[in-house]
Design a binder for these strands. Structure first.
Lengths: 151, 151
DNA sequence: TCAAACTGTGACTAATCTGGTTACGGTTAC
DNA sequence: GTAACCGTAACCAGATTAGTCACAGTTTGA
């Protein structure tokens, strides 16, 4: 499979922005540095989140990005649905099967139903975690590592 | 996303084979006709299922394929795990993020954990359906359509 | 013995998507 | 008016997709 890591990129960027609760703007350059990527790619990924109301972009000098709503209200399901738009983890037949066969007549719609259910289960798990949850766990991991190093 | 439809192809082929409970052999040509595809592609997909003990292939004239175990004992999770080998529906970062950033230091492992949980939820849903279940529903749909047509 | 019917597999194709990059126009702050 | 941004189009190499052809190896059965 060649699935895209745009969801991972978007979640990372949103958590990065969530660090500034006041909603200060961060540039795509700054976000790209955290991702070890480049600003144009970040703008492309965040552009979709902007269209769907997850982030706000401000143009011009001193412009940049901020969350459009509290990090508690953005779940991984929201991000996945937007970043990897209609991504289907379990595609059905590439083209319709043979209708002269009883399996061919019915398997396509059965699989559509089964695979949609499975995808929904995945998305419901994603919906249980918010950007705020992840940021909290980032900070917790960081404190744990500092403590382990004896600071 | 560009996920493969090999799971769908494999499930279809297995349900096709499950029609012959006695385990009679069916050729890749016959399976390809049901899929409206071609024998070489079918052999490649089924070849992986053979390596993992889901089907048996018999070479030579009068050769072909049959299920290696009862259709009740083959779930969609089994098929997916084999047909789309280590397919990952939610990949993490394409390359590791910047460790000079607190988000970069921790987001990768957090996402690995979250995405693995989500994938597991999807697979558990797939595990609830067997090839025998699907074949039963194929026959049920067929009978329903015949009844609707007034036979 | 030999032809026919299979599986197994390598090689190739066109199409599509991936992350990455450069370039440049539009917008805004200072 | 310049510098720092976003927005977007265009392009890249690499990977993967389903699909196809070809052919070697195996087995049946006439």
């Amino acid at each position: 499979m060649v699935a895209s890591s745009r969801t991972a990129t978007a979640v990372h960027a949103l958590a990065f922005l969530a660090q500034w609760q006041g909603g200060e703007l961060r540039s795509s350059q700054a976000i790209a540095e955290s991702l070890d990527s480049n600003p144009a790619f970040v703008r492309r990924v965040l552009g979709r989140l902007r269209e769907r109301g997850l982030v706000v972009a401000v143009e011009g000098a001193a412009g940049g990005w901020r969350l459009a709503k509290p990090a508690e209200e953005i779940t991984l399901r929201d991000v996945h649905a937007v970043a990897d738009d209609g991504a289907v983890p379990l595609p059905v037949h590439a083209h319709p099967p043979n209708r002269n066969c009883v399996i061919g007549r019915h398997m396509l719609s059965l699989l559509e139903s089964e695979f949609a259910d499975a995808q929904r289960a995945m998305e419901e798990r994603l919906a249980q975690t918010s950007i705020a949850d992840l940021l909290g766990r980032v900070y917790r991991s960081e404190r744990a590592e500092e403590a382990a190093r004896g600071n």
